[in-house]
Amino acid sequence: MLDKSPQALTAAVAADAVRSGRSAERGVVYVYEAPVRLWHWINAAAILVLGLTGYFIGSGIPTMPGETSDDFLFGHIRFAHFFAGYVLTLGFLFRIYWAFMGNPHAKQIFYVPLWRKRYWREVWHEIRWYAFVAAEPKKYVAHNPLAQLAMFFMFTLAIAFMIVTGFALYAQGTGNDSWQYMLFGWVFSIWPNSQDLHTWHHLGLWMIVTFALIHIYTAVREDIVSRQSIVSSIISGEREFRD
């Protein structure tokens, strides 16, 4: 975790300015490196495809008219789901790699410092801020503590869960001798009846839908209300503090 006091923030801005040769006057810190940004958008697209196709796979589509041999719509929907699943998985693996190779902020979504008292005080402040009790938001270079909490549990863990359960379900189609089954077959020791696995995979979808709602709303809201760039930061990589 980085120190979040105003002095430290100014220092972070200054240090970053020295490194990148930018003016410290603008109050800009380089937070999201290019690979993180690229991953973010590819990941977002994959989740969009996975969510939509997943919903259709789960509930079925309106019956196609005409000859059976002319249609392969459900097959194509499933193919898109599997394809996007691979994209998501490879992206996630890359993102774990980048947590080690990238800047300190790149690690933030992979842990929560639950053991630090100060972290909890800061979470409490964020809760007060979102409950309209605290008048001023604290500023953070990367995710705020509450965002980090949501990121870790609703995104990182949820996506990992979806990857594992997803590949286990995929292994049902590829068969007992496939590498998917070798790697993920253990999931069926937890849920011997794969119907339960489908049920959990559906619940995972709704967890991620809920996350996306909160994620997009708070990103836009904080961009406007707390006088720092959020939305443009995931495009340019830079966080600007506007006062």
């Binding site: 079925g60 589509i61 309106p62 019956t63 196609m64 059976t68 041999s69 002319d70 249609d71 392969f72 719509l73 459900f74 097959g75 929907i77």
Partner: peptide, 10 residues
Amino acid sequence: PHFDAGQFVE
């Protein structure tokens, strides 16, 4: 084949 084509009993 009906599953893959998207042809279901409603």
